[in-house]
Simulated assay, not measured.
Amino acid sequence: MKSVFVTVGTTCFEELIAVVSAPETIQILQSLGYSRLVLQVGGGAAPTPLRTPAFTLEVFRFRESLAEEFQRADLVISHAGAGTCLETLEKGKPLLVVINEKLMNNHQLELARQLYKDEHLFYCTCSTLLESLKSIDLSTLKPFPPGQPEKFAAFLDSITGFE
Rank of each mutant, 00 (worst) to 15 (best):
A54P: 02
Q71T: 11
L57Q: 06
A45R: 13
T48K: 12
P143F: 01
I28P: 10
V59A: 06
P143I: 01
E150N: 13
K91I: 00
L86R: 01
A46F: 02
I99F: 02
R51A: 12
G33H: 06
G33R: 05
R36I: 01
A153Y: 09
P149A: 10
Q114M: 11
G33Y: 04
H79W: 08
E69F: 06
Y34R: 00
G92W: 00
A112K: 09
L57P: 02
K93T: 01
L121N: 03
L111M: 13
L103M: 14
E58G: 04
K151N: 13
A154M: 10
R113G: 02
I28H: 07
S31L: 05
L37R: 05
P146S: 13
S127P: 03
G81C: 03
R51S: 12
G43E: 09
L103A: 05
Q40A: 04
E110Y: 11
G42Q: 07
S78M: 04
A46I: 08
G44S: 04
T52G: 08
I77V: 15
Q108R: 09
L141S: 10
E87R: 07
K151Q: 14
A153H: 06
F60Y: 15
R63K: 15
F55S: 06
Y116K: 13
R61D: 12
Q27K: 14
R72I: 00
T140H: 11
Q114T: 12
H79P: 12
G42W: 03
L103S: 05
T140Q: 15
L115P: 04
L121C: 13
Q40T: 05
L66E: 02
G81A: 02
Y123D: 00
E150P: 03
N106A: 09
S139I: 01
N100E: 08
C126P: 15
S65G: 09
Q30A: 10
E150V: 12
Y123H: 11
L129K: 05
T128P: 07
L39M: 10
K91Q: 14
Q27H: 14
E68I: 07
L50E: 03
I136T: 10
N100M: 04
K102N: 14
